[in-house]
Design a protein around this nucleic acid. Structure first.
Lengths: 244, 244
DNA sequence: TAGTGGTCTAGACCACAGC
DNA sequence: CTGTGGTCTAGACCACTAG
């Protein structure tokens, strides 16, 4: 089984990426259903006029995303429940916007401050080094969802409350030429104290999901540290884990 | 900069894997420090007598793990904080054992039961289908750490309380020939009810981290559903996320 | 036995970064 | 300009699975 795929050799988009995206799209639309067997790599390569390594690279990307599995001697098969993976390198803002859940943001703080020890350590700076600190309350459909605290080392892109109220932080950083390529996250849980409860319109003692994240650009520099709390009653994280 | 690497062409271990492991080991031991520039792919390939694609495949694995970054026109660089990633496709038991934290397990239930609707849905079965249910209390260094509930569809490998008290579930499944290759997880938080609090030696209302996981083998069959709670005061999850 | 994916080679051209 | 990683080719041999 093979979805209809067309490759454009004049496009600047890599061929393997064009193939991967079109197979992924076929899975999303249901043209390829869970359990379906994909044509062999050789067959796909011949039918598209590509080499086998190129096709293999395309399929490899889908395997990494947990959308399909390969078995030697058997073939390549579509996995059930190919839900979109969350916990990609995107912001909560982008996630909400993509799923049509009207994100809104209140900027509670935007200031240049001496880095707290925890933030400084995460960013690889000495405590007290000047950094830009941002605290935001993220709402979705009117409901408070998360309190997000971020620390940005200098040089920092131009940030205004206005921009932060309409754009996700990652989008702003990306447009400022900061290319985040890897992030390390620690996920835990806690209960709401009085201040957190008030902000999030929860009761004291309500369950909160916590996430700390340090993000690096492609030069290995830490470009952002975030410490966020989410209302567990309204939010959870999804992860797809693959072996090999 | 290049760590000392030796490849054994007579070994059944793939060459790219040998190279990747030895570079990773050099990073772990500090022979390669954060910020160090790796030799170019061509240089490494020549010095090892391998082709460039093979070396590239090795480095690609490390990039996927968030240990290094590649920049076109610049080179390949070691990232800071090369902590081992958690949230791999391993069991909590294995994680604890690897870090020397003496896991112990109490089997609270091991029985064949009709699947609850939630578990049946996750496994793709009709509610009430007979499944094997396991409930375990996992301890580390004497302290309760997690309550783990698992549902296994038939055919189920032979399970005994004795085996489950000394081995992780994933290890048992692996030895029974069940090769888990992809899992989808949902992570959230809740507060402890009276029963959970008693088991985990926490107060009622204490923060708990929740994880639900459905695991698939390489034929796309759901082979396990787990619903686990962890003491947030003793446990958190780590994830490394990479772009591209 | 035939067909699959897993690995590997020895090249090639390109875009990009830094000098 | 040189050197880097990013992409791509056209083969090859192998281990494994299924019929």
């Amino acid at each position: 089984m093979r979805p209809r795929i067309e490759v454009d050799r004049s496009s600047p988009i890599p061929l393997y990426f064009q193939v991967a995206e079109q197979i992924a799209e076929a899975i999303r639309t249901g043209e390829l259903a869970p359990g379906d067997q994909l044509d062999s790599e050789v067959q796909i390569a011949e039918s598209l006029g590509l080499s086998r390594p190129t096709v293999r690279q395309a399929i490899g990307h889908l395997v990494d995303r947990g959308m399909i599995v390969r078995r030697r001697g058997v073939g390549t098969q579509i996995l059930p429940m190919p839900v979109r993976r969350e916990m990609e390198l995107t912001s909560l803002h982008d996630d909400l916007a993509r799923s049509g859940r009207a994100p809104a943001t209140d900027v509670l703080l935007l200031a240049r401050v001496p880095a707290e020890p925890e933030a400084a350590a995460a960013l690889g700076l000495a405590a007290g080094t000047p950094v830009t600190k941002v605290v935001r309350l993220r709402r979705s459909q009117g409901e408070p969802l998360a309190v997000m605290r971020n620390w940005l080392p200098e040089p920092v892109p131009p940030l205004t409350e206005e921009v932060l109220e309409t754009r996700g932080l990652y989008e702003v950083l990306r447009k400022a030429g900061i290319r985040i390529c890897v992030a390390r996250q620690r996920i835990g849980a806690c209960t709401a104290d009085a201040e957190q409860a008030a902000l999030l319109e929860e009761r004291r003692g309500a369950a909160l999901l916590t996430m700390e994240r340090t993000a690096f650009d492609d030069s290995g520099r830490a470009v952002e540290f975030g410490s966020h709390i989410y209302r567990a009653s309204r939010y959870s994280l999804e992860v797809t884990v693959t072996e090999h």
